[in-house]
Amino acid sequence: MEAFLVSTGIVALAEMGDKTQLLALLLAARFRKPWPIVAGIFVATIANHALAGAVGAWVNTVLGPDVLRWVLGLSFIAMAAWMLVPDKADDLDSGNAPRFGVFGTTVVVFFLAEMGDKTQIATVMLAAQYNPYWVVVGSTLGMMLANAPVVWFGDAITKRVPIRIVHIVSAMVFAALGVAALWPQS
């Protein structure tokens, strides 16, 4: 249960103001078809985070517990610093015409945008520490909690949510997890 709750919370926080959340907003504004966009985000997230969970599980088998503790702790602290650098909508390109329809375009673009993203890296790190299945389920839920409302309610949400404060809180959560991972185990 801890893996599920931690993954859900971390990914939902990390996704606030992230490039994939901005992509969700751009797709919603462009296509104005929320259901295929949300379904596409869901499918892309499951595929991406299942891959990340498998990598995290593999990392757990390759590294010894002491090395893994240091890698995880330092990675979480690095994620805390990364959270303070907001993504910009200029980095995104949603393409011209929806060659594969709204759903297919969303799956492809969202999957690619999520590669190497904060939330994917967080999923790898969490899967190395916890049960990968529950990490993937939790991180997928966190992604949906952050992105589905943006697709449905768009600008109204982004104007009311203080993204800078969310980034600072997220950074503090990642830093605390990093320190906790580095803290000597008794």
Score class of each variant (00 low, 15 high):
Met1Tyr: 07
Met1Glu: 05
Met1Lys: 00
Glu2Gln: 07
Phe4Pro: 01
Phe4Thr: 00
Ala14Gln: 04
Ala14Asp: 03
Glu15His: 00
Met16Tyr: 05
Thr20Ile: 05
Gln21Asp: 05
Ala24Trp: 03
Ala24Phe: 08
Ala24Met: 04
Leu25Thr: 02
Leu26Glu: 02
Ala29Thr: 09
Arg30Phe: 04
Trp35Phe: 09
Pro36Lys: 07
Pro36Leu: 11
Val43Phe: 13
Val43Asp: 03
Ala44Leu: 11
Thr45Ser: 13
Thr45Phe: 04
Ala50Gly: 09
Ala50His: 01
Leu51Trp: 09
Ala52Lys: 01
Gly53Met: 07
Ala57Asn: 03
Ile77Tyr: 06
Ala78Trp: 15
Met79Leu: 15
Leu84Lys: 04
Lys88Thr: 13
Asp90Ala: 08
Leu92Arg: 00
Ala97Thr: 12
Pro98Arg: 13
Arg99Trp: 15
Phe100Pro: 01
Val102Arg: 02
Gly104Tyr: 13
Thr106Ala: 14
Val108Pro: 01
Val108Gly: 09
Phe110Pro: 02
Glu114Thr: 15
Lys118Pro: 04
Thr123Met: 07
Met125Arg: 01
Ala127Tyr: 03
Tyr130Lys: 05
Tyr133Met: 15
Trp134Arg: 04
Ser139Tyr: 12
Ser139Trp: 11
Leu141Asp: 02
Met144Lys: 02
Ala148Glu: 10
Val150Arg: 01
Trp152Arg: 00
Gly154Cys: 05
Ala156Lys: 10
Lys159Phe: 05
Arg160Phe: 12
Val161Phe: 10
Pro162Glu: 07
Ile163Asp: 03
Ile165Glu: 09
Ile168Trp: 03
Val169Phe: 13
Met172Cys: 09
Ala180Lys: 08
Trp183Cys: 02
Pro184Asn: 06
Gln185Trp: 14
Ser186Met: 12
Ser186Val: 12
